[in-house]
Design a protein around this nucleic acid. Structure first.
Lengths: 217, 217
DNA sequence: GAGTCTATGTTACAATAATAACAAGTTTAA
DNA sequence: TTAAACTTGTTATTATTGTAACATAGACTC
């Protein structure tokens, strides 16, 4: 099957396409061209056509892509046709915000359990999500057959907690801690590093600034 | 100057190196090798040496890198030696979490102003940050000479607000909205798309799952 | 229904990034 | 002081990603 050798770079763009198709569909648009898409998602039109072509001929020459059928195709490809249950580990500032964050809106994802050590919230329901004590994590993850975990614990305990969720059979971790956690290669980690993003922005900004100065000088 | 042609991929890794050097310094370590670093930050040791070499010869053969001097070098390179003031636009769930998020801890960044339209929080101070009304945004951004903005507004108004901050002279936007905003090419955008990250993770997970099945079958 | 127009899918090319390999300094130990 | 061990910096190689170009299939017009 062709889908087994989708380039990483392509795979990362699929959700972006998917979301914009959703938007077009909601707006009642029937067809869309790669150029139009390119403008909206800021990806070169040739890249878009190339990305799509890995999945076969999804469009029609001289016409473009049919919004509904393309949307349906990506829905299936991105597993958006079935609900994915995930767990949130660490209900601090960021964790709380993610509980409220509407992953479910354009995304068929639900946070079905949260875990923390703080006695004042364990046993309660936060933003419609039950919060369990970390002691019960392994059991709950197994029972609920949760394969994906959002990690928002303090970095001090990040590796320790990671080991635990891996033992519980988790296969994917969305890692919000600044640490690069160690996992067996059957487990996939996606890092979201807020500080990094900001620092990178500052770094590039400064470079640009200097260039501008040169131009002026 | 060599620093003007640092590859993008390298630049994105600099903050990761910086943070780990910080950790090593705090732990009192004197020296570190590329292999050791590689293990901690999950980047190939050759890649690390290559990355570093863009900035000149930072290490010593047969010895490794001196933690303190490397840290000092990156501190300067990443502009961590001076405080960067940023503004937060949109004080919703995520915005609130980011106000509490400790950017300042290992990062010399401070959120010095926040903006929103909600009358119940404008004029108040949230997590030690004054919240202004969106109507005063352009003025405040200019007065406070803020060049970087964290964008956490509803996607509906994302482009509109973007235009405004750009007019106010902002040069970098950390975009948390799922929309790919349009800016002049003097402005840099760094996208942080939480839904995307999660979807990408789900996508890859599914592919791996299928592969495993094949292996078993 | 023939001709023009349009936008895909693909092929060829260019740029960027990652990895491997190793020569050349430095350290360390004897 | 010498040699073995180590680790960088760099060069050569490979892999990945992005962009350009265009032939081709199909849509649209009259």
């Amino acid at each position: 099957m062709a889908t087994s050798k989708i380039p990483h770079a392509t795979a990362k763009r699929l959700p972006i396409y998917y979301r914009y198709l959703h938007f077009l569909s909601d707006a009642g648009k029937q067809r869309v061209s790669s150029t139009e898409l390119a403008d909206a998602v800021k990806v070169d039109s040739a890249t878009i056509r190339r990305d799509f072509s890995y999945f076969g001929a999804l469009g029609k020459r001289g016409y473009g892509y049919d919004v509904e059928s393309l949307l349906a195709f990506f829905k299936k490809t991105l597993n958006q046709d079935k609900l994915t249950n995930v767990a949130l580990v660490g209900v601090g500032n960021l964790g709380h915000a993610l509980l409220n964050y509407n992953f479910h809106q354009s995304n068929n994802v639900r946070i079905s359990a949260a875990f923390d050590v703080k006695e004042d919230i364990t046993g309660t329901i936060q933003s419609s999500v039950p919060v369990y004590h970390m002691n019960d994590m392994k059991e709950q993850l197994s029972v609920q057959q949760i394969e994906i975990v959002i990690l928002t614990v303090p970095s001090k305990v990040a590796q320790e907690v990671t080991n635990e969720v891996v033992e519980a059979g988790v296969k994917g971790i969305l890692n919000f801690t600044p640490l690069r956690i160690t996992v067996p290669d059957t487990v996939r980690v996606q890092n979201v590093d807020l500080t990094n993003e900001l620092q990178t922005l500052i770094y590039f900004l400064d470079k640009f600034g200097k260039q501008d100065e040169n131009k002026l000088g």
